[in-house]
Every structure is written in C-alpha cells, then in structure tokens.
Write a protein that binds this DNA or RNA. Structure first.
Length: 485
RNA sequence: GGGGCUGUGGGGUAGCCUGGUAGCCUUUCAGGUUUGGGACCUGACGACCCCGGUUCAAAUCCGGGCAGCCCCA
C-alpha cells in the first residue's frame, strides 16, 4: 500500500522538501505538464486552466467595476516602438524574443509587456481631457527570455497575465490609480484567493524599466523566500513623451498624458494559491477558485448500483441548481478510496459520499478538504454548502494570515538580519536610503546575506530611526529585506 | 552569471562501473469478478532524450546539444 501511495500520490512532505513537493503536486494534481521540452515554456492542463479562468473572472470583475475596459492587442511589437523609451529599452531588450525577417525586413519583438503598444494607441484615441481617464486592460501571454533558472509557473519565458494600461490628465489622478491597483490586489488576491502580501514601494534601483516608481506585492513561499506578485507602476509622462501622446487640457493647452500600468500575472498567482494553501495530501483550493467545488462519490455494490447512482444524480442536479460547481464521479472502475485520494490531491473543497446508509437516513456524508473532517449532513441542509464555502475560504485566509504575521522580524545588525533570513523570514530594517545613494548597501545585502532590499511599505509612512547597519549613516527608510525567487 | 547532479514504455525504476537477451512495479486497453479510504484474475499495447565518435557490436564508453532538478552569486 505504501508503494502504491508513492507512485500515485505525493511522496514528500511540504515542509520537509518544499521544492520537490511543488514539482510533484503540480504534476500529479494535473495542473502542469512540463514534458514538451522547451525551456521556460509549460503546459497548463484543464485543472490548472480552470483555476486560472476563475482567477481571471475575479480580477476582471473588479477591474471593470473600477472602469476598466477590455481590449486585445497584438502579440508583436515593432522594433521602432519597443525601443522608443530609453530606460524601457535598457531594461527589456536583453530579454526580448526577436522575430527576424518576416515582415519585409522589419524586426518584430514578441511582447514582453505592452506599454509600447498602448501608448501609440492612446495618442490616436485621446484628443482632450474629456477622453480621460482611459482605463484599458487585456488578458495576454507575454514573453521574456529570462535567466537560465526557469521554474514552471514561477519563472517562465512565457506567462499569462492581465495588463492594465491607464491614461490620466494629471499626476494626482495617476497616483490615485496606483493606489486603486494596490487595493485590487488586496481585494482579489488577498481577500478572495487567501494570499497575503506586502505592498512594497521598490527602491530606486529596482523599479520597472521606464517607471517613475513601482509598487510590487511580495508574497511568501513556504520556504520563506519571497515571490513578487502584481506590480503597479507610475509611468508619469515618460512613455507619453517618448511617443508624443498629448491631450488638450481644461485650459486648452497641450499636455502629455500621465500613465500607469498594473500587471497581475495570473499564472504566477496560481503558484501562490498552490503553495500557500496546499498540504501533504495535495492541493487545497479556495472554494471560490476550484473548478469543482463539490465532488460526489457514490458508493455502490453490484446490487444497489442503479439506486445509488440515481440518488447521486438527484443530489448532483440539486447542487447545480444552487449554483455549486459539482462533479459526480460515478466511474465504476475505481473504488471509493481511490477517488477520495485523487480528489483530495486535486484540492476540491468538499466531497459528498452517498451509499446505502445515507439513502436510508436521508443524509449524506460530507467531507471537508482542509480539516479532513467527515460529518453527516441532512439532504435538506445541502443548501448550506455555499455558505460553508465562504467559511472554508475564510479559514484558509486566516491560516495564511497567521503564518504571514510570524514571517516578519526586526533586525538591527548584519548578524541579526542574516539570522532572520536564515530562518526563512523577512527582516524589517532601518536603512540608509532607497534612492541611488543606498545602492551600495543594497549590494552588500546581496553579496554577504544573499538577500534583497525589497522596498518600503507602500501604504504607511513607517518612521525610521537609528543608523543603517551597513554604512552607519542615519537611516532614512524602514525597508524589508528578504530572499526571493 | 558560476558550479553540480540527472535523463530507460504514460509515471516510478533495474541494468551502465566490467559493451553482446532491455527486467520489475504502476498506468492504459480488452474480458470477467468486485466496489464504505488507493481491489483481484487473465490477456494485450508501450521505452534506452537528440546528434556525432570509438567498436564486429553502444542503454552502457567518449564528445557535443537539448531538457529537468539542485547549490552558489
């Protein structure tokens, strides 16, 4: 039996060998298939794509509520446009996939991001302040020829995201948008998906290529390393100036557009959903995201098969009418135990077991994935499942928040900071500066501690005191230092 | 960016050192018996990552490539 388990289920524990756990769970829960064999490109299977589809819906719903409109833009960018904004060029050209000689000698880039597609269109679409704000987004695949250290979904050469590109008539409006973007991350990724994050205003040396400033969301992986999730950028007028995208303001004067960009990488957020909630039996998916919210496993013998299946179908259609994503697993080749293991591996929140016993008592056996508790539920109580789903997600969120809280610790000396990083935590540190003059200390952090200065907390002006532990100058900022993916 | 390890049916592996018959478990398919936490019987399908070299002969030795994983910066 142990042998069998090792072949079909997970054979590592999440907290003993996280890396191997991640590899196994993504493959065995049928999220990914990496066997196509092109470095940095992975295949997302129906179970993974189903989760991603739900993630898209939550994000898009929130974005649309805030006035964003959907678009679909080309996947290629002319060299001329991609290279118009100088800092953007420096930051991105090393990792661009070029398509050569396909268009009368014109070089085209597979988009690494689409500022240089939206801005020229803003120039055409926006004439006056009355056209503003213009808030657009798209679902897109983007391509970046990233380092050799690719990892499925975590760091790939192609990933799936939503990118928002917004244009405003003033810097104030644009900055408000940056705040709104942070709020969307909070509402959707944290509150709905149960993935907590630190909104980090990145240091000057770590902002998006072409941005005035960048706020990234840092989430924890179980090994204590950080992974960047949605980031939002104040582009200011850098791109509009590069493209000559002007509008006529209220005073009748020409002015360059103020733009922002926000990019939740959905395929990467899936990593955080998987790694934040999963356990030694496999995935645990939030009720809101799981492609199947309740699976029904009928338990029958040759004699009562018809009766049990009929009852199961009845309950299945009842659940579907309640709007619950339901799957009836009536496969008669597999035994119930095998089905339990498989659906637990896939992370389905609830399971209903129906057999002779349940039919007699007019109830079902109700299993909950995170607590692994089985209870009896009256058939008339099935309508409670959606609210149990909300409680399910609340439990996941609370659990994630708790472990998140314990991951941040104050450190006042290099020694202390190293210890914090070595125990899989993030250090909160008084630091000289996040402007250019701080870069030397940041390099010390990288070289000697293997850590990164991730930035300052975006929404609260944390007061620094004392001296920078690396250069001894007065500390102007409170920064967070962590190791990262 | 630097280094290390690995690559055998769909998955997990044995064989590699010492060159010569690719073995096992599982999955899948067919039939039958089963079905309350990974069922059993019978039968079948299915593999040496790619390119080159050495050799009478390469899964095995050598070189290169590709891919995956790990460690360090």
């Amino acid at each position: 039996m142990e042998q069998k388990k090792s072949q079909e289920g997970l054979n590592v524990k999440k907290n003993e060998n996280f890396s191997e756990w991640y590899t196994q769970v993504t493959e065995k829960a049928e999220i990914l298939d990496i066997r196509l064999g092109i470095k940095g490109f992975t295949i997302i299977r129906p179970w993974g794509a189903g989760i991603i589809e739900n993630m898209f819906k939550f994000f898009e719903n929130e974005l649309q509520k805030n006035g964003h409109k959907p678009t679909f833009m080309p996947s290629v960018i002319s060299k001329e446009n991609l290279t118009k904004e100088s800092e953007h060029v420096k930051g991105f050209t090393p990792q661009v996939f070029w398509l050569k000689d396909i268009n009368e000698g014109q070089e085209l880039a597979l988009r690494p991001t689409s500022e240089t597609v939206y801005t020229p269109m803003f120039k055409l679409w926006i004439r006056s302040w009355r056209d503003l704000p213009m808030k657009l987004y798209q679902r897109a695949h983007v391509f970046r020829l990233d380092t050799k250290a690719t990892r499925p979904l975590i760091r790939g050469r192609e990933f799936i995201w939503i990118e928002c590109h917004d244009a405003f008539k003033s810097k104030e409006d644009a900055e408000k948008q940056v705040q709104e973007d942070i709020n969307v991350t909070e509402k959707v990724m944290h509150q709905i998906f149960g993935v907590p994050f630190l909104p980090m205003k990145r240091p000057e040396w770590d902002k998006f290529a072409g941005a005035e400033y960048t706020v990234g969301s840092d989430c924890f992986m179980p090994d204590g390393k950080l992974i960047q999730q949605p980031s939002t950028h104040l582009m200011g007028q850098k791109f509009s100036k590069a493209f000559g995208a002007e509008f006529e303001n209220e005073n009748g004067k020409k002015e360059f557009l103020w733009t922002t960009a926000y990019g939740p990488a959905i395929s990467r957020i899936l990593v955080s959903v998987i790694t934040t909630h999963g356990d030694d039996s496999g995935l645990i998916l939030p009720y809101s995201l799981s492609p199947v919210q309740t699976v029904i496993v009928p338990i029958f013998t040759t004699k009562n098969k018809e009766k049990v299946i009929k009852k199961s179908e009845e309950i299945s259609s009842k659940l579907k009418k309640l709007g619950i994503r339901t799957e009836l697993d009536s496969d008669s080749e597999k035994r119930p135990g095998e089905k339990y293991h498989l659906w637990e591996l896939k992370g389905v929140p609830f399971r209903i077991e129906i057999g002779e016993k349940e039919i007699e008592k007019k109830e079902v056996t109700f299993f909950t994935r995170d607590t692994k508790e089985k209870t009896n539920m009256k058939i008339t109580d099935l309508k409670k499942i959606p609210s149990l789903g909300k409680e399910f997600d609340k439990r996941l969120l609370e659990k994630a928040d708790n472990s998140f809280k314990n991951r941040i610790e104050e450190g006042n000396s290099e020694k202390e900071i190293k210890k914090i990083l070595d125990t899989g935590k993030v250090a909160k540190v008084n630091f000289c500066s996040t402007d250019k003059e701080g870069v030397e200390c940041a390099q010390i952090v990288e070289k000697r501690l293997g850590g990164e200065v991730r930035g300052t907390l975006a929404n609260s002006n944390e007061k620094s005191n004392g001296k920078c532990p690396f250069c001894g100058k007065p500390a102007k900022k409170v920064v967070y230092i962590g190791r990262s993916y």
